[in-house]
Design a protein around this nucleic acid. Structure first.
Lengths: 163, 163
DNA sequence: GATAGTAACTATGATAATCATAGTGACAAG
DNA sequence: CTTGTCACTATGATTATCATAGTTACTATC
């Protein structure tokens, strides 16, 4: 393909987000970062993306200011990637994607066994289901407010990928 | 590239969403549909995407059940694309992307002139800013609840594209 | 009634992004 | 001194994307 069209100078906010978020690899890496997977190899293994794609996207995300590269030891040199405040603020987007998928992206048979991932509101202990705000206490859900419990199927899948 | 990895059978809900939403063209087309642009040529012009990309993505979106192709006249045959309930339910995702971009994706100079797009809550008349729920009446914002007013710069940009 | 116009596409070729696989550098452990 | 781990980089085949041009089915204008 020719170089993909640049959207970073559009005035439309959705266009600007799409410049970064309209990319499968970026979304998958963000998901892993939100789940606490910070090491390069762990992200590559869980996402199933090749190392040069992970490398390229992490560099891009660092340039965009959503992740920070951080050395967690000197000898041998080892790095991890952390979400910045700008990155953590993408929680709403990822959470909305999760909610939509839980509502629409599973077949009847799959859905019967409950959501792929249950989320509990730490503040009040309620199962939030797929709502934007907590159905029990009515609070807006933010980064860190939820405790996730993957279904057995999801747990098995992740284990199979060695992540 | 080789065929891109298929995520439609992951158990992870974000992965399933990423299968559809991790694509610049899909996001831009969805944006246009949410703004009421339903005709093929209008979407192609405003997104700046080539006709075969728009065609391919609309077919995909139709297959996924987020849009419906609808003939609005017989002679000559003319079609438009409409969001289905499943498509309209993506509002939360697009709105979260918009909010994030308004908060983070503009330079100081650009941001000074206010948001690229102002949204008013129809029910109470309040400017919602970049919040998930209405800052005045506290209600969760859904598809159709908001009235958007593009900034002068955004209006000029769209006019220049002939949309 | 021949030319121009519009909407909704399809066809073609050049370019570039992606995947799979293999390899590298820096060290630690056995 | 061979094996192992982490964090990558290099290479080559494949395929998606973009830009441009062309097609189909009509209506409207000269």
């Amino acid at each position: 393909m020719p170089k993909r069209a640049d959207l970073s100078d559009t005035f439309c906010p959705v266009g600007r987000s799409a410049e970064l978020l309209g990319d499968r690899a970026v979304l998958l890496i963000l998901r892993d970062l939100f789940f606490g997977r910070r090491r390069f190899e762990a992200i590559a293994a869980n996402t199933g993306l090749g190392p040069q794609l992970v490398s390229a996207r992490l560099k891009l995300m660092e340039k965009q200011g959503v992740v920070e590269r951080h050395a967690y030891q000197e000898r041998p040199p080892r790095h991890e990637y952390r979400l910045t405040a700008k990155g953590k603020d993408l929680f709403d987007v990822l959470y909305a994607m999760r909610n939509w998928a839980e509502r629409w992206a599973y077949e009847a048979g799959e859905a019967a066994s409950g959501p792929a991932m249950r989320y509990i509101h730490r503040a009040c202990g309620a199962d939030v289901g797929t709502s934007t705000i907590c159905p029990e206490c009515g609070e807006v859900l933010r980064y860190g407010d939820l405790k996730g419990e993957p279904s057995a199927a999801l747990k098995a899948e992740q284990a199979a990928k060695g992540a």
